[in-house]
Design a binder for these strands. Sequence first.
DNA 1: CAAAGCGCCCGCCAGC
DNA 2: CGGCTGGCGGGCGCTT
Length: 323
Amino acid sequence: MRGSPSGALVIGVAALPGMPLFEVAVPCEVFGTPRPGLVEPPYDVRLCSEDQSVDLGLGTLRLDHRWTDLVNADTVIVPALAGWDAPVPSGLVEALRRAYERGARIVGLCTGAFALGEAGLLDGRDATTHWMYTQQLAERNPSARVDRDVLWAGDEQVLTSAGTASGLDLCLELVRRDRGAAVANDVARRMVTAPHRTGGQSQFVAWSSPPTHDRGLAPALDWALEHLQEEIGPQQLAAAAHVSVRTLSRRFRDSLGTTPADWIVEQRVRRCQELLETTTFPLTQLAAMAGFSSPSTMRSHFTRLVGTSPRDYRRTFGDGQTR
DNA sequence: CAAAGCGCCCGCCAGC
DNA sequence: CGGCTGGCGGGCGCTT
């Protein structure tokens, strides 16, 4: 990796006319916002464009960097294009190829994946894009393995994400790889978003599909979510993952930034939230359904993680059937 | 709420 | 010999 003079990792973001503003803003927010004491040294984000100014629909940005600056970045991000078949400047395609050859990480958010495809970077790789355009992506890149049902896909060097919000998930994944899971979790917390969303883009509920990465852990996590109401703990989870409790503990720290017991409690609280929103079960029964040994333990965990009591949460987010 | 018990996490080390 | 695994034990924080 090249890095800037200060040693910070350089993130090059390609800005093209007509790009949705939010798509450009996502990597700028994740990587560009200074987070003293958490992300040290901070990332060096460089917005690059063809000319001095780029029209993003809602306004015109004046930018200091050009396509050639992308080549020297450690990570190059192409946000969603103006349209899936919007023309990609040859200068950008060339910069992507050269950056890739120099070992840079290349990332396409949403329809930005099509730009990576034009540079030939998706060949033989797992890839995705917005679910409305996966067909077109597969047709244009016959040798890519396009998966319609993941939030993001890729390998160590070339990654793509699905629709708008999943760009956040992918950017947080990059932080996880660069700085570790604990830091990524903290960044997510400060942005008030989920540190690690599971499920694919066609899913509406989070607990039905395994995460797309850490494949070794995924089946065990899936199994745990199906048996939350039972008395499962680190031992059962380790058995499901076919490893020792000691190894399981390490895997959790490395890939999720948490511990098995804490993760289970978090999942149980999430289950509680869902049940409070959609059912009118009494709290005693609800606690049991989420796998808590008593309503009081549910209450303490719930208030600690959510910030409000289960009763207040139901009053605010339930369907109004409560009395 | 307070005390006691215990489940869990992690450092350490040995084995592969 | 370097990395990964798993068993052990101590200490700590949570549960009851």
